[in-house]
Write a protein that binds this DNA or RNA. Structure first.
Lengths: 393, 393
DNA sequence: CCCTTTTCGTCAACAACGTGGACTTATGTA
DNA sequence: TACATAAGTCCACGTTGTTGACGAAAAGGG
């Protein structure tokens, strides 16, 4: 009976929606004439003019120089997003870093800052205070470029209650039931899982034309998956969907903090991988791992192959249940891809699902660390473009 | 970049949408006064009156007797759906039956018919012709009650290309690349997987107030899952999501037609279960199985326990990836539930996912066979209620 | 160099639709 | 019988997209 999304529409609703339509097309096609916008949207030229006028009045767009699109005829006026208009702030609490990122309405990166430092031992309040400091710096830096931060999104590595802004359980930070709402003074903030936001980062900033249907594997200490369908994140009933890390990879494998046995992240997670490869904690252990793999170290190769097989098996289950178009590996995996992907592909192809059609291609994210912050900031922009009402006077 | 759903809104769009809002509220609250509709929807009384007038003109609703809701004041006029208005036709091609079902706009069952008979040996064309016959009978029967069938949906047991109306692969029917579009003369028909429609059947007709977030396990010869989130079916990128039957239940188990090994449906599917229990093909083998279980037959009990454990393991994976609120067992499982559910719950609870919160409750569908036809017909109604435009003059 | 063609953007009249308040009708209570 | 209360309708109005005409600005042809 729950048929959400069927809500009364009044004139004001119609207006906001149509403003969003025009704004999105402007964002997507950057310098665009009103005439072209009319073609793109299906509105009449008059309506486009009116809507653009409103957006202009709100300081979101500007008229630029005349441009010549066709062969003959009067040139149109290029409408563009204002570089000094609204912006979105992305923040990330990682296990070993905090980061911030500011995007303008065209999703161009305008500011970026990362602070490394282990957050595992610190009090949640101290971490959140440091994050708020980062946010203040970012807002100030944005203001220096004439940008007004209109909202924020925070990526957190754990299961969280988005409604109430509480981190329910973040095992790798050691957080349980930590309220995060209100940590950011005076900013409308939204909180989401790191894996979900990393997937959105891949959607908007990933190499090439990433279509809107994929599963992004976020390999960190834990392993999460961001499920993107038709350009939107699939979250399940409570927002906990995509917990790839606790699928069973080896039924009689090592015990996991979740109470299970042989969970994927005990085989293919960052720490498990390093342990199996015999690499001690230290500076840049992943670089060490990559070097040993390149050098042909047997222990390291075996660990990578085992991780690849385990990932492939878990992804076979994900393919059966979620039917993604593509699989993208992110997090710590890209540098290890040459050794992990082949066994992964084998396990994936051997697993069931071959019945239906070709197994989805496995790609490797070109994004370095920070897919999640980018996704977080991009999400703020997404929300603004979809509903510019808060930006109007 | 694919941000579907952001489409220009014009006056006509607004109207249709608002008509849908009012119509849905009428369907949901059956005899309702205009004043109450105004409260429910948030429209003014005037607007409600206008919208109801349009719906009345289209023959979708009627004014009934005056009703007295409050203590004092003028009584309101009860607006109801017309019993002799539009209807939805659901059809199902099962492995051993064909069935049809007609629902009115209030989703009341107005006609139902099942023809048993094995479809495995028959030509697809013959099966589809028989189905068309059933459809004709149903349309005629509906007409006899003053109902006009406005659309149809067909449930099919296999993977299908919904865009083009082609059954890509239905292993249990032996169909491959069978076009099903056009089989139904003069009816706008939609085709969908049996598991998806059975889940919708459970949503609309299942016992009690079934919330809009659950996974419905459709246990037949194959095992499919219908994933319902916020009242809508999750289909994945190509419409193949929910293929629970080919998750690996026993890594070194029996080979499967999909090319894998130890697939869930080779352990917990109908035929696998009967085979393991030592029950030969014959009349009502499931009744035989239930009887032997009740009698304490060791072989049967072992088979059921094994199936339960396998289901629990597969569902643990589904819980991690999909985060459902509830799990509902349907298809052949309800009569076997006393023997299958306990080991299933154990395996589900032991499996990972316990980290996040309580494991979702496992419920048993109260719907006998035919959840899929009901879901199919209900889907047609859903579409009509969400967009009554085709019904307007 | 002027004139025609083509395209862009705007303006004014118009139409669709929800809103607000007044008005009528029907019921109950004092 | 008088008054309060609630349901439903009527009419003037505001908002918003549409239609068609018009002026503006460029390119090509004679």
């Amino acid at each position: 009976m729950t048929n959400s999304g069927n809500v009364p529409v009044r004139h004001a609703t119609m207006r906001v929606r149509n403003l969003a339509v025009v704004l999105e097309h402007i964002a997507r096609h950057q310098p665009v004439t009103r005439a072209r916008l009319a073609e793109l949207t299906g509105f009449t030229k008059t309506t486009v003019s009116n809507l653009v006028q409103v957006l202009d009045g709100a300081g979101l767009v500007v008229d630029g120089a005349p441009v010549h699109e066709g062969e003959r005829g009067r040139p149109g006026v290029a409408v563009s997003l204002r570089g000094d208009g609204a912006a979105g702030l992305g923040l990330e609490v990682g296990v070993d870093h905090l980061s911030a990122c500011v995007l303008d309405l065209a999703r161009r990166v305008r500011y970026r800052h990362v602070v490394t430092g282990d957050n595992r031992g610190r009090e949640p309040a101290a971490v959140l205070a440091a994050l708020a400091g980062l946010a203040d710096d970012a807002v100030a830096a944005a203001a220096g470029q004439g940008l007004t931060v209109a909202g924020a999104a925070v990526a957190l590595p754990g299961l969280l209650d988005r409604e109430n802004g509480v981190v329910r359980h973040a095992p790798n930070l050691g957080w349980t039931d930590v309220p995060v709402t209100g940590a950011l003074a005076g900013l409308r903030a939204e909180h989401d899982n790191e894996a979900n936001l990393a997937a959105l980062g891949e959607l908007w900033f990933g190499g090439g034309a990433r279509l809107g249907d994929f599963v992004h594997v976020s390999g960190e200490i834990g392993i999460g998956a961001g499920i993107v369908v038709d350009g939107r994140v699939f979250r399940g009933a409570h927002g906990f969907a995509g917990e790839l890390g606790h699928l069973v990879a080896e039924p009689s494998g090592p015990p996991c903090s979740c109470g299970g046995r042989g969970c994927l992240e005990q085989v293919a997670g960052r720490d498990a991988l390093l342990r199996a490869a015999g690499i001690p904690a230290g500076d840049a252990p992943l670089d060490v791992l990559a070097a040993r793999l390149a050098a042909g170290d047997g222990t390291a190769l075996a660990a990578a192959a085992r991780a690849g097989r385990a990932l492939g098996g878990a992804l076979a289950a994900a393919v059966n249940l979620l039917d993604p178009d593509t699989i993208v590996l992110g997090g710590v995996y890209p540098p290890l891809a040459p050794w992990i992907v082949p066994p992964l592909r084998d396990a994936l192809a051997a697993g069931p699902g071959s019945l239906r059609r070709a197994v989805p291609p496995v790609e490797v994210s070109a994004l370095a660390d920070g897919a999640a912050v980018l996704g977080a900031a991009g999400l703020v922009i997404e929300r603004l473009l979809a509903d510019p009402a808060p930006l109007l006077p």
